[in-house]
Each structure stands twice: as C-alpha cells, then as structure tokens.
Write a protein that binds this DNA or RNA. Structure first.
Lengths: 340, 340
DNA sequence: ATGAAAGCGCTAACAA
DNA sequence: TTGTTAGCGCTTTCAT
C-alpha cells in the first residue's frame, strides 16, 4: 500500500541553504517577531528557491493546532443535503472561518462506519474542533466529541436541556411573534403545521404558536395542529387535513418555508385566495434562495449570523479550556413581503 | 492562541501498562500479523482501560499515509452545490471510499484565499489525494496539485487534451445515440440546446449532436443550435429562440435534464404537445432525484459508476508512482421512459 | 537576534 | 514473537 511523499524539502534544508538555524526558519515561516529583516529575506529566498512547504503533520505533532475544523453533517439521507438551507449554512461558515487561517472540512456521517471513522479522525487530533448540523435528538455524537474534549458547537439543540454548546434561532419567539402579527391584522382562526415533533426545533415553534394564542387569551385546540416533516408534500397533506377539520381557517403558521409552499399550493388547489382568504407564515431558512411561490410574511432566521456565531463560539472554546457550555439564541425577524 | 490536546494516553503508556514494548502495541493497533493471541488480548485491554486513541499526526509523520482524501468543489457560486447532481456524486464517492478506511473531506474552493489555503493543506501532506468536481476550463488547480505529485482525479475534463487523470461520461456518444434514436423514430427537424460552450462537456454533447445528424447524411445549421447554461431558465429562453426560428421543430436534444425541463415548459406554454409534437431528450445527471416533469427519453449518465471509477483511479495512483495519467470514459445509456 | 537541542507520538527496520 | 532503536519534520525553550 504505502506511498511516501517524494523529495519534499524540509525546514532543515532551507536552514542549511539560507545559512541559518532551523529555529530561525521556523520563525520566518510562522512570521514570528524577532528576526532581523535581512535574515528574513535570506530565509524567504531559500524557501522560494527550494519550493519549501511545511509538513503539516510535523507541525501538528510538535504541539500546535491542526488548523482545521470539521463541519459534520449527520444526515443519513444525504439527498436532503441538496437543500438551499445547507449550502447557505456551509457557505456562511466558510465565510466566517475565512480569516482564521483554518481549513473547513466537510464530512458526512451517514452510517455507523462513517460515524466511527470520523470519531477516530477527530480524536486523532486532525481537527481542532467540530461544527455539527442536522443533529437528531437521539444522536450521541456531540457527547462523544465533547467527552474527547474536542471543542464542539451544534446548530440547534437536541432538547430543552442541551448541554453541548450550540447556536440556535429563537424559534419559539419567532412563532409567537408571527401569531401575534396575525392576530393584530385581524385573523381569528389560526392553524399551524408543525415539523416532526420529535425534533426540538419543531416543538419550539409549536410552543411559540401556543404562546402567541395564549397571550391573546385564546385557547389551543389540538384540532388546529397538523404535524408535517418540513417537506412540501407534508405541507399539502397537513393543510388538507386542517381544511377538512376547519373550513373557516383564515391563517396558517407553517413550520418552514417549504412547508408553507405546500400549504399554499393546497389552498390554491381548493380555490382559496392567498393571502386574502388565508394568511400564511413560514420560517425562512434560506433567505437568498429563489422562491417559486410569491413571498408572504416570513419569520426570517439569520443564517449568516448563525454561521458567524457558531464559529465565534468554536474559537472561544479553542482559546480557553472548555469550562462551560456556551449557548447563543439568535433573534428572528418578521419580514412582511406582502400584506397578510 | 494555541491549545493542546489534554492528557491523551500515548502508545508508550499503553505498552507500559500491558507490560510489552511499543512495537507490539503498534502491531496490535494496526492489527498486523505476528502477535501472540494472549499478548494481543493484554494490549487491547490496556488500550481499552486507558482509552487510548492513536495520534494521527504522529502516524502520518512516521511515514504512512494521511488516510484521507479531499473532495474539492471549485465552484465560486456555492449555491450551485445545492443540486442533486452534487449530492449524488458526493454520496457515491463516499460509498466507494467506505471500505478503504479513508476519510472523505469535502472542501470548497470559492475564492483565491480558499484555493491557497487548500493548496497548503494538500501539499502539507494532510490528504493522500484529491478528487475534483466542477472544474472550470481555465482552472489550474489540477495542474498545481499534479505538480505537487499529489494523486488527483477529476470528474470531467477541461479540454480535449486533458492530461491530469479524469473520469468522464461519453458525452459525444450519448448525444449521438440520442439523435440517432430520434431519427429512427421518424423525427426530422431536430434542434439542440447546449450548455455553456466554454465548458468541454457542452462542446462534446454538441459534437455528438452533429455527428448523429452527419451519420444520417444530414447537414448541420447553426440556426438549430441555441446555447444555454444548464439552468432551467436558459432552457426556456433557448427553446423560445429555436421555435421562433423553426416552428417546424419536432425534436430537441437538451444539454441536461434541467435544461430539458425548461424547454419542455416553454413548449407547453406555446401549446405544443410533448412528446407527441416534439420529442425531448436531456442528459440525466441525477437519476435518483424526483422529476417535476413526466419522464421522457433520457441519456443516462451512471453517476454511481463515475464515483466508483474516480476512487478506483485514485487508489491506483496511490499504489504506484504516477507514471502516467489515467482516463476513463464511461458509456452512457439511452433510457426510454416514454414513447418519444 | 539566533543557534542548539529536546521532544511531539508514532512506524518500521533490526535485533534478540 | 517481541523489544529496542532510529528517525519522520517541526516547534519551542534555553543558551548564547
């Protein structure tokens, strides 16, 4: 099997050529202070002449960081990765990491084999930290990474008492404000289509819906709630169920933008006018993506902000020993693109 | 900045605890032959008790491989990554790599900074090889990697005389067979919508279209050719242009499935019946994805096969010094899902 | 400001 | 079969 990297010049050879010691070359390479300008020049020339490239394994071994962080997508159905939501997040993490000098390594964990392989990789010290997205409620990967003392930050939490560090949007607050907005504009019969209720994010949004109604002194009836799974298909079906139960519905809070699109389609198919008859609000996961449906009022989650916050948290954990978990909840924003 | 991995037990400590030499522990960890069963047991127990995890940097430095390969997406507009085509390819590469024990690291190269960072990473020896997708014709990254003697395999080629190793589909052959099929079923006025003609893949498909016509003794007129960019939007516009020039069109060869969908939509919008009036054939880049449009005859590219071939090539280059470039052209398949 | 030297944790070649 | 040893290429004190 094995294969060795060919004829790569080493730091020592550079030192010899430049007529200096290894330490000096090291200082120049890492542009540390305390090197006379003329010396630096000489070393840099030697580096250029030899085409020297530092060996990262040696550097890591010698005690410094791996200068890389892993973005782990624990999604068994990798096709779901082909959603604007993901590319948006990946992109924003890349931006946020851009000037830290770290490599962003995207790794997919679809199976137990891959999970094991990644754990070895991470515990083996090849990354300085891990960013996790799409973590399921029963996934223990975050705990294992945390136990290995690897700085770890999740997008979203697995439950109400999550301990591992995470960044989340204020889902309950967003849903609450959406309902409040709907009530303020005169809507009276507000239903909701949730995400899969074994996911904390879906539970939170449902809770916000309930809070919004409760704040107006309204009671919550289970018949106004239909569970979906974030897909458009499920949005249509859920909408159909709700209409069958309550033809008088005049507003719907959907679990996501995609779900909202499904609901909207179903409404139109049944002859309702949107948003005149029925107002729809969904969570906008991918603000930059084009919409096939006309924009309605939306609870916007600041994805770019989320990416930035995740990186910030990770860097913090990198600096100081992780004495505590850090959590950041980002405010959502109600965007009116259309009179609802 | 710096941060050290805490209290990680080393191979030496394991050896001490198991009462054996370091070499023996190394053999057990890499399950090499030549270790008495009882010894192996003892070592493994010590490993378990100490929670030992091998330091990958040290392993790499000591001469073995990095046990990781990079999948590089050189796509400035990262949103394009949110296409079934990509997730399909990534997934298939992951599968193909599954039992090699290597980590697949997805890295995005959107800017010069990222390109530079990745180059350092790769030349630094942190990956054993690189797989490149969506490489533009004028991108020199493949050459730089090759010069660094890093095994490199591309999906597709940049030009007709590509030298760096690649795996490609037989685009010309596929287009040719599509045209031949159309002619055989009685179509006479066959137009084509191409991809961006500064991409070799688009050129190849156009060439195949011409060859198919030429084989039947038909001449090719530029007015039957409209350039698109693989998107649905461009498919619609191109179709509109073609219809304006040649209302008698009875068949279209589109550059991709997405383009075909656009053309189809435009045709329907203008009242044509598809596929009765007009037959459409596109290249199917993502056979598993759901289609919004009813399936028509398609030139199918075996994406899973392409992934497997890329990994195979990479492994070959890993084994032996790369004395030569290796190229694999995979046959496409004409799939009739609907009478055209 | 700079050189010398001591590891970092592992693999592999060589003894025993 | 197993222990010992010599590096892999770099960072980082510690002298100078």
């Amino acid at each position: 099997m094995g294969r060795r990297r060919p004829d790569t010049p080493t730091l020592e050879e550079v030192a010899a050529r430049a007529g200096v010691g290894r330490g000096t070359v090291s200082r120049v390479v890492n542009n540390a202070a305390g090197v006379r300008e003329s010396t630096r020049q000489a070393v840099q020339q030697a580096i250029a002449e030899l085409g020297y490239v530092p060996n990262l394994a040696a550097r890591t071994l010698a005690g410094r960081r791996a200068d890389a962080v892993a973005l782990v997508v624990t999604e068994p159905d990798w096709r779901l990765f082909a959603e604007p939501f993901f590319s948006e997040i990946v992109s924003s993490l890349g931006d946020a990491l851009a000037d830290t000098g770290m490599q962003l390594l995207l790794t997919m964990v679809r199976s137990d084999t891959e999970r094991k392989r990644f754990l070895e990789y991470a515990r083996g010290g090849r990354v300085d930290g891990a960013l996790l997205v799409s973590v399921r409620a029963d996934d223990t990967l975050p705990d294992m990474l945390a136990e290995a003392r690897l700085p770890t930050v999740m997008l979203g939490r697995r439950s109400g008492d999550e301990h591992v560090s995470y960044v989340d949007a204020d889902n309950a607050g967003g849903a609450r404000s959406a309902v409040t907005h709907l009530l303020a504009t005169g809507r009276k019969a507000i239903a909701t289509i949730t995400g899969p209720l074994d996911m904390y994010v879906a539970q939170s949004r449902l809770r916000g819906y309930r809070q919004g109604l409760a704040a107006a002194g309204l009671s919550t009836d289970a018949s106004w709630i239909a569970e979906g799974d974030f897909t458009e298909e499920s949005g249509r079906h859920a909408m159909a169920r709700l209409l069958a139960r309550h033809p008088e519905i005049d507003a719907v809070l959907a679990a996501s933008d995609t779900t909202a699109a499904g609901a909207l389609r179903e409404l139109r198919a049944t002859g309702r006018r949107v948003p005149e008859d029925v107002a729809i609000i969904g969570f906008d996961d991918f603000p930059l993506a084009e919409q096939t449906e006309p924009r309605l009022t939306t609870v916007r989650q600041p994805l770019a902000e989320i990416g930035r916050a995740m990186v910030r948290l990770l860097l913090e954990e990198l600096e100081e020993p992780a004495l505590a978990w850090r959590h950041v909840i980002l405010r959502t924003e109600l965007i009116r693109r259309d009179s609802a």
